Amino acid sequence: MSDSKSTSLKAPFYIPQFTAKDYSSFFLAGALCCTVTHGAMTPIDVVKTRIQVDPEMARMSLLSGGRRIVAQEGPAALLTGFGPTAVGYLVQGGAKFAGYEFWKKQFVQIAGDQETAVKYRTAIYLGASSVAEFFADILLTPLEATRIRLVSQRGYATGLMTGFARLAREEGLGGLYAGFLPILCKQIPYAIGQFTVNEFCHELAFRSMSEETKRSLSGTAKFGISLGSGIVAGFAAAILSQPADTLLSQINKGHGPEGSMPYRLRVLAQQAGFRGLFAGLGPRMIMTAGLVAGQFLLYGVIKDALSAPPGLEIHKENSAAHT
């Protein structure tokens, strides 16, 4: 009797029914926010990659590494790999953000009611971000392999098309997807940190606020919450994905023994050690904090411009409501 009574008192379980147009808006917003932010971060990423793969730069800071590259190769060297970075994260960003919206909705539906969805919201965030990232990485991997070759092997090619064509011609599909496993090991923890930590930062910020306070928040306050949440999520994403990011750079440069990918990753990890796996973490944390915060801010702005619906929110203080 009490069970049926409690069930009848539950709030209506509302799940938005997104259309194909809604998902295309999510995809476009995600694509633009990722390609803009990753493209802008190309100089930092060049320095970070060199620190990871060049023994002479292994102990350099972001600033000293950048100065060394400019002194030896000129300022244009800091834009190496801009083409594959912009295109790669255009397709990956669209698939990741639209995929996260899609899979979060699917997992909320599987939960069956809002109380269960809120209770297991961490699992929903982890599952949605992981599955979305897996499919997005199928699109990203060949372009990321091209980018790393351009950055780590000076003179490899003149740009995206020639670099991609050379890699495909010389090494085939195996070369283009040699880094798929390590990129999954890098990008899935990255996505988990990005989306899950951002969700909980927003929840923490809004939990102590009354509905009236939330409705009356100024634009500056909302911007501050989004920016702060994005920065913290960026730090988490960088730390969780750093070891695999280092191994990815090594794999794409051709380092490591022959054999299966898990074996190569294990040997490279043993050779690098804990300190080596986290080489370049400082610059990458700076880069990732800017990337993630910028992406969430731009994603919201572009969605608004496209008149896209809000995403599904399952924060504890506002069960299964809209963002």
Rank of each mutant, 00 (worst) to 15 (best):
M1K: 11
S4H: 11
K5I: 13
K5T: 15
S6I: 12
K10H: 07
Q17K: 10
F18G: 01
F18H: 03
D22I: 05
S24L: 13
A29N: 08
A40T: 09
Q52K: 10
V53T: 07
P55M: 04
A58S: 13
M60Q: 05
L63D: 09
S64D: 13
G65K: 00
R67W: 12
V70G: 12
P75D: 14
A76G: 14
A77Q: 11
L78T: 03
T80M: 03
T85I: 12
Y89L: 11
Y89R: 04
L90W: 02
V91E: 14
Q92I: 06
F97M: 08
A111M: 13
G112W: 01
G112A: 00
K119T: 10
K119C: 08
K119F: 08
R121A: 09
T122K: 05
G127S: 06
S129P: 02
S130Q: 01
A132C: 06
F135D: 12
I138H: 06
L140T: 04
P142T: 09
T146M: 02
I148D: 01
G155R: 01
A178S: 15
G179L: 03
K186Q: 15
K186I: 10
I188Q: 02
A191K: 01
G193P: 00
G193N: 02
G193E: 02
F195A: 10
T196Y: 00
V197L: 02
E199L: 11
C201T: 11
S208Y: 04
T213D: 12
L217C: 09
T220H: 11
K222M: 14
G228E: 10
G230W: 00
I239F: 03
D245H: 06
T246R: 00
S249A: 15
I251T: 05
V267T: 12
L268T: 06
L268E: 02
Q271H: 15
G273W: 03
L277G: 00
I286N: 15
M287C: 13
Y299E: 11
T323R: 07
